[in-house]
Design a protein around this nucleic acid. Structure first.
Lengths: 235, 235
DNA sequence: TAGTGGTCTAGACCACGCC
DNA sequence: GCGTGGTCTAGACCACTAG
C-alpha cells in the first residue's frame, strides 16, 4: 500500500518540528506553499495540517498561519501517540511481564465481547520511567487472533504499536479512556516507589484498530506527582 | 453570520441521536444520502460526520457506514462539550460563587500571559451533581476584556459556553488539560461529601476560543468513585 | 491590499464489506 | 457487483490579520 500523500506531508513536517528546524512559536509553510512544494492540492495540505493539529504539534490561526506549539512536559497518554513520542527523550521501559498467553483479566474495566472471550489472550506488562523515576505501570491484554507467532517477536524500537503496524499491518485508529483517582495498592506502590495509599491516576484504555473486531485493552497506573498526564482537544 | 452548512447537518444529526431517533448501533444516512437530502457536496457531508466522530457520537467503518455509539455513563470532561451534554439528564448545578471581579488565582496551573495579568479577572465556581450526589467542583477564571457587563448576566440555559456564544459570539475552539491524582483537601472533601484525604482527580483546563488572546481557565476536582471521567480519541 | 486559513462545489478513483 | 467511506484534484468565494 502506497503511503498516503497527506501522511507523507504530515510526517515530513512532524520530523522537522521534532528535529527543531521549526522552533516553538514559528510558522510552518502556508497551505499554498505546501501545495506547490509537494505538488498537492489544498485539500491534501489541509488534511496534513489538521492531523498535526489533532496531535497537538501546532496551533492554527485564521489569517496568520500554523504555529508550532510548545510540547508540554506532561505525559500525553490520552491520545493515540505512544509513550515515548509523548514525553521526550529520557524515557525508559522495563518489562514486568513479557508477552505470553494468559487469561482475560477482571482488572479490565471495559466490556469484552463474547467473541473476544472465546479467543485466547496475550498479556504483557511494562514499567515506564522518566530518568530514574518510575512514573507509570502499564498492563496490556489482547486477543492473539491472526497475530501468528506473536508472543516471541521483539518489539520494533521497543514500540508495540510500530510492531503491530509493520509486522501485521494493523493501525491504531482511536481509543476510549476512563479515568479514576485511586489509592495505590501495595503492589502498585512498591513498583512506583511511592508510599502505600498514595493517590494515583488509574486510566483504563480500549484501543480501536483498523481490524474492526480487534481491540487492545490497557490499564495504566500513573504517579502524577511530577509528571501530570496531558491532553489537548481541537475544534 | 450565516450558520455553516456542515454545522447545520452536524447539529441536525446530533439532535436526532439525542432524541433517540437513531438507536445505539444503528446507521446514520450515508454520505451520499446526506448530499442529496441537504443539497451539499460530499466534502461538506464528511465534515459534519467527522465532527460527530470527534465528539464521540458515532463510529465510522470503511465500507459500512456511520454507527451511533453508546453514550458512556462517564463524565466527558476532557473535550469541548459541556458538562450536561456529557453526562445525561439528571445533572444539576449549584453556584458556589456567582461571577464577580476577582484576582488571578495561583491555583491556576497553566501559565497566564503578561497581557492577561494586566487585565482584570472574573471568577466563578460551581458544584455539579448527578442525582443528589456531588461529583465535581469547578473553579473558573477569565479576563473580562471585551465582555461588557458580564458579571451580572444570567447564563443561557445554565450554560456558560452558550452564553459566551450567543451574547458575545465567542466560540470554544479547543482545550488543554493536565490531570493529577491528589488527596482531597478539607474544603474539597466537605463540598464533595467524601472523607478527608480521599483520592480525587484534579483536572486543570485551559480553554482556547475564537478570540485569539482570550482563554478560560478552570480547575476541576472530581470524585471518580461512581462516575469516572471519560474520553475518546479518533484517527 | 496581499496573504492566510475556513468553507464549499463538482467531479474522480480507490479500498473495504457484503451479497 | 454495488454501496460504503477514504483519498485526491482543481477550482471558487469568504473572513481574518497585517502592513
Amino acid at each position: 500500500m502506497e503511503e498516503r500523500r497527506y501522511k507523507h506531508v504530515q510526517n515530513f513536517l512532524k520530523l522537522q518540528i521534532q528535529k527543531g528546524y521549526y522552533v516553538v512559536g514559528s510558522y510552518l509553510p502556508s497551505e499554498n506553499e505546501l501545495c506547490s512544494t509537494f505538488s498537492i492540492t489544498r485539500t491534501t495540505a489541509r488534511k496534513a495540517l489538521e492531523e498535526l493539529l489533532k496531535e497537538g504539534f501546532i496551533d492554527r490561526q485564521h489569517g496568520k498561519g500554523s504555529i508550532v506549539r510548545e510540547r508540554r512536559k506532561s505525559l500525553g497518554l490520552l491520545n493515540v501517540k505512544g509513550f515515548s513520542e509523548a514525553v521526550g527523550k529520557d524515557v525508559s521501559t522495563v518489562f514486568l511481564q513479557h508477552p505470553k498467553p494468559g487469561l482475560w483479566d477482571p482488572a479490565i474495566h471495559f466490556t469484552i465481547s463474547e467473541t473476544e472471550l472465546n479467543e485466547s489472550c496475550v498479556h504483557f506488562a511494562r514499567l515506564r520511567r522518566v530518568g530514574e523515576v518510575p512514573v507509570m505501570i502499564e498492563y496490556n491484554w489482547l486477543a492473539d487472533t491472526g497475530l501468528k507467532g506473536f508472543p516471541g517477536i521483539d518489539f520494533i524500537e521497543g514500540s508495540f504499536f510500530k510492531t503491530l503496524s509493520q509486522h501485521y499491518h494493523i493501525e491504531i485508529t482511536g481509543s476510549e479512556h476512563e479515568l479514576r483517582a485511586e489509592n495505590a495498592t501495595k503492589n502498585i506502590a512498591a513498583l512506583l516507589k511511592i508510599p502505600h495509599d498514595s493517590p494515583i491516576l488509574h486510566i483504563s484504555v480500549k484501543f480501536h484498530t483498523s481490524n474492526n473486531n480487534f481491540f487492545i485493552y490497557s490499564e495504566l497506573y500513573c504517579n502524577t506527582e511530577n509528571y501530570p498526564v496531558g491532553n489537548s482537544y481541537h475544534l
